[in-house]
């Protein structure tokens, strides 16, 4: 029998912390961090006016798109489906956060990594659907590029997560479970090798999946005028921005918790734990931003051969080692 308290806890977890609101806030702060850092690297000032050192700028941008800017619609545009798919993507991410130890309401089961990966795929589905629901040539080319990119990058993410959980939750009561591999990792030397390899593959694949330079090929502003996002406006664009940055925040957070050991060397009970997690998170984000600022955009076929060479091979090797260990 499920008690009222548990239901309430689950709802709060999904909607507020560490679910929807938390993800959106962290995502928009992530956007601020990336914009500010890229600005400084490019000899610019970056966000400055709204809030202290421009911290509230991304929030102001999203609120403006939501409440001030109008939604432009035209014949052949599937407005409702667009919004529904993006909301589903955001919801799926928020639900996936319940698998991590950050959540007060814990979801864990043997082999739950499959459900976790399924939930992660929804954002990609949402972005691909943008291309299918609009008839603009830029969007169509952009979404075909996204699908090509995802076709190669998603297996990398899946294999590296499975390899890591395989190693970390070995001998546990709940094998292949995200929660037990994060909270109670069993690590040996071979496991460390697997984790390092998976981290490299996962980290690069995150850049592909979230369309960060040099992999911003589906957006490609100077080729496709924004590609996927070319026809979005007003609230739908706000939703797309929130989804995009929540995805970046979510995947970086997963990398921090799963591959970098969360609050290690402290533990989850420790009150300084969140600080350690935040520092690790910012280091990862810093590296992503550094790559983003020091690279141009490559072509789609160059990207796919790069993914196969440097990411898919590495993650498959990690999986093989993990299954042998």
């Amino acid at each position: 029998m499920v008690s009222l308290y548990e239901i309430l806890l689950a709802v709060v977890s999904v909607l507020i912390y560490p679910g929807l609101i938390f993800l959106i806030v962290v995502g928009l702060l992530t956007q601020w961090f990336m914009r500010k850092l890229v600005g400084r690297l490019q000899n610019r000032i970056g966000p400055k006016y709204v809030g202290p050192i421009g911290l509230a700028q991304p929030f102001a941008d999203v609120l403006k798109l939501m409440f001030v800017k109008e939604e432009l619609s035209f014949r052949g545009r599937l407005d409702k489906f667009l919004a529904i798919f993006m909301a589903l993507g955001l919801g799926a991410l928020a639900t996936a956060m319940l698998f991590t130890p950050l959540s007060p309401y814990v979801v864990k089961a043997p082999y739950d990594v499959i459900i976790f990966i399924y939930l992660m795929l929804w954002t990609t589905a949402a972005f691909s659907f943008i291309g299918l629901s609009l008839s603009n040539p830029f969007t169509i080319v952009g979404s075909s590029r996204l699908l090509t990119q995802i076709l190669f990058a998603e297996p990398v993410i899946v294999t590296s997560i499975i390899a890591t959980t395989l190693v970390l939750s070995r001998n546990s009561e709940t094998p292949l479970s995200i929660y037990s591999s994060i909270i109670n990792p069993k690590l040996d030397v071979l496991g460390l090798v697997v984790i390092v390899l998976s981290l490299i593959a996962f980290f690069l694949a995150v850049m592909v999946k979230t369309m960060i330079k040099p992999f911003d090929i589906p957006e490609a502003e100077t080729e496709l005028a924004g590609g996927l996002l070319a026809e979005l406006s007003g609230p739908t664009l706000a939703l797309a921005i929130m989804l995009h940055y929540s995805e970046i925040a979510f995947l970086t957070l997963i990398a921090t918790l799963l591959f970098l050991g969360g609050p290690y060397p402290l533990s989850y009970g420790d009150y300084l734990g969140p600080l350690v997690i935040a520092v690790k998170y910012l280091i990862l984000l810093f590296i992503i931003t550094l790559i983003r600022a020091s690279a141009g955009r490559i072509r789609i076929e160059q990207a796919s051969s790069m993914i196969i060479k440097y990411m898919l091979t590495v993650s498959v090797v990690a999986l093989i080692i993990a299954s042998l260990a």
């Binding site: 890229v38 490019q42 000899n43 600022a293 141009g296």
Partner: peptide
Amino acid sequence: VGFDSLFML
């Protein structure tokens, strides 16, 4: 080619 940093510099 999407290399904004080089453009700015």
